[in-house]
Design a protein around this nucleic acid. Structure first.
Lengths: 235, 235
DNA sequence: GCGACGCTTCGGCGGGTGCCGAACGGTTCG
DNA sequence: CGAACCGTTCGGCACCCGCCGAAGCGTCGC
């Protein structure tokens, strides 16, 4: 009885992502930015009318939020929790479909190197930064920010924990990337690192999507502050 | 192109849980034990033939595993990863449907008090134990097992980290219960605590399901070793 | 061996849902 | 004001999928 009711609720949530088109939308929105209905339709290869209906449903469910500007409809993930839901699920996907080995050679090479995942760094860059922070003891075992790490963020990035707004958001957590299949830093610290990197112009967004590119300053900085020697390979 | 392919893969995974009957099965299986096809059919209120098909699909997907014994078909979640997937998703359900307030008065009162969630303690008991371990500093902020906690597990439970098999399973992680809406201890430590509690006869399974009941010994032990004063309310 | 039992297969029904094209309304820009 | 553009609504199509009952198969128990 109530068993079945709980099942129905769970099924309802899963059903949101159980459609290829809606799932594609959600993955595209994982960069945390707002996309127009038309862009999403094109990327997902469906007619605008089809996209419109799906977006209605995503918004109605609370998973997405929208703002209308003129003749445009901008849609984004509603909040961090929504992003975490997508991430969680995507993290459980079987390893890889058929890694063609050419992945790095495609037009999205920049994306493979670095991108944002909702509000933190992902891709090879995100993994590299995370690995370096782990190696230097800034992050510890279960993805907690160490005292040393807090100090580093404060002095080098000007974004230490003391400057963060009070909230219950975890300071650090692991986000499993669905392409790199490696954990990388998410949570408040992840978001602040990403923001600081952008502020300091160590990285810059390219194109309209989630891709980011390491700048020349960034290459130097990553070497100096994180001991990443081969940072230019990420640029 | 590849955007859409990733979306399709994600949708396929979500579709497994997007059916009320399959979702109900998965929630029932969260206790980590094997149920027969008939039991699952009855609990989910569907015909045996319907259940059969769903179980085929769950097994084929790798989410569940089965063993046939005589005329019975025993089905269980395939592994910890499968359980984590269900937990993750269920943890994102909106707070509560319409908490009737009578929850504790139903026939499943024992279940409300304590149960196992795949391989660790959940329910009010699980939350209480977790809270006590947090209060005593056995678990720290981001759900990592402290040195003190490791010592405690070793001396009191006879199940310290040194005795664990080497694996990449996280020592401790939070599992968000879908009824209590409170995090409780999962991961290797959670599993060992549950096992030790059973071994020490502090808890005992009741019925065929996931419900566990605190024994008289357990009430005393929880008071002595975790400072849980009102443990009899959980018995 | 015969019935009871657990499960499965099959056929068929019904409902839900994703998809599109065409027509329409609103906004922007010339 | 008119054309281009973005998005939505609507109707209709097709398909998928969940569900059941009936029949069948293997196992268990008397």
């Amino acid at each position: 009885m109530t068993d079945r009711a709980q099942g129905a609720r769970l099924a309802g949530l899963a059903a949101l992502l159980a459609d290829p088109t809606r799932a594609t939308f959600c993955l595209l929105l994982l960069d945390g930015r707002a996309w127009t209905a038309g862009e999403l339709a094109r990327r997902a290869a469906v007619a605008p009318s089809t996209a419109s209906g799906h977006l209605d449903r995503l918004v109605a469910s609370g998973l997405c939020a929208q703002e209308r500007q003129g003749r445009h409809r901008y849609v984004r993930l509603a909040d961090r929790r929504a992003a975490a839901l997508i991430e969680d699920l995507a993290g459980h996907l079987p390893p890889a479909p058929a890694a063609t080995g050419l992945r790095a050679a495609t037009a999205s090479a920049a994306l493979a190197r670095g991108r944002t995942c909702y509000d933190h760094l992902a891709g090879r860059l995100g993994v590299a930064v995370t690995d370096a922070m782990l190696a230097r003891g800034y992050i510890e075992g279960g993805f907690t920010l160490s005292t040393k790490g807090a100090e580093w963020m404060d002095t080098v990035l000007g974004a230490g924990p003391d400057s963060w707004p009070r909230s219950r958001r975890p300071a650090a957590r692991a986000c499993l990337d669905w392409t790199e299949r490696r954990p990388h830093l998410a949570g408040r610290a992840g978001a602040e690192v990403c923001r600081a990197f952008l502020d300091l112009a160590w990285i810059r967004r390219v194109g309209t999507g989630r891709a980011v590119r390491l700048t020349a300053d960034g290459v130097t900085a990553l070497g100096a502050h994180l001991g990443i020697e081969d940072a230019d390979a990420l640029a």
